[in-house]
Design a binder for these strands. Structure first.
Lengths: 125, 125
DNA sequence: GCAGTGTGCTACAATTTATATAACAGCCGG
DNA sequence: CCGGCTGTTATATAAATTGTAGCACACTGC
């Protein structure tokens, strides 16, 4: 499992961590039932504070990507609230596509990008 | 011109404002050369501070959506750095689609959503 | 019991966000 | 030239967020 944190990024550490793990799930590096490293262990590995990792895990729990087992720590367990997920996607996509549209990125180019990213998920599974 | 700010949102005011304006450009409510309200005027209209509006305008300027004319204020002027725009889109899309993929949203559903949003832009133009 | 687990709490510094005043330089119409 | 409009800059303040730090607790597996 490779998690890369960019300490020069303006994105919060716990969000970078959250995103990396979500991408890890999408690319099947993490699978349903897999245990994530303990907050202390991962914090040590990355070189950040325990609470920062804990915050990332808490967000992932709240967003329905992991469940917490006191014996195993954080375990990948995806709660599929598709209605909610679509609503979230719609809201985020709105701004993203508005930007793209302004910058003359065509609908076809976006479709191609979607395919490219989706295929990268399927292949690494 | 309608700009709606949600004071209960956890999204920063200046970012909401930025997003609304970008969507406004995409939907042709604002067109190339149009002047945005002055920072003071818009701040008054919305009921927020002048500097918050100024920050939104500054971000829009840096992102290449407006240029600033001291006589006319902020003017819609899109600087098309397509390479940059695609790179940005790719990075943002990565996390968004990872989330969607985990939540069992199919590639086709994403495509449909893209079309839906893009069409809403073209129709209101 | 011991080591490891998540969780809770407090505290602190740095940064971001938003507000509030105030002032400045440039431009325009009267 | 003057008054009013523009963006811009500076300073100050309050609140929230971010990240670190240390400590303690309850639970679990060996």
């Amino acid at each position: 499992m490779y998690i890369e944190i960019d300490f020069n990024s303006d994105e919060a550490l716990y969000l970078q961590l959250r995103n990396q793990i979500i991408i890890g799930i999408a690319t099947s590096q993490f699978q349903e039932g897999d245990a994530l490293p303990s907050v202390r262990q991962l914090a040590d590995t990355i070189g950040i504070n325990m609470h920062t990792v804990n915050k990332a895990y808490s967000v992932l729990k709240q967003e329905g990507f992991v469940k917490v087992d006191r014996r195993k720590g954080a375990v990948i367990a995806i709660d599929i609230d598709k209605m909610q997920a679509i609503e979230d996607l719609k809201r985020d996509m709105q701004v993203l596509l508005a930007k793209s549209s302004c910058k003359q990125i065509s609908r076809e180019e976006v479709h191609a990008l979607i395919d490219e990213i989706y295929e990268s998920y399927e292949n690494e599974g």
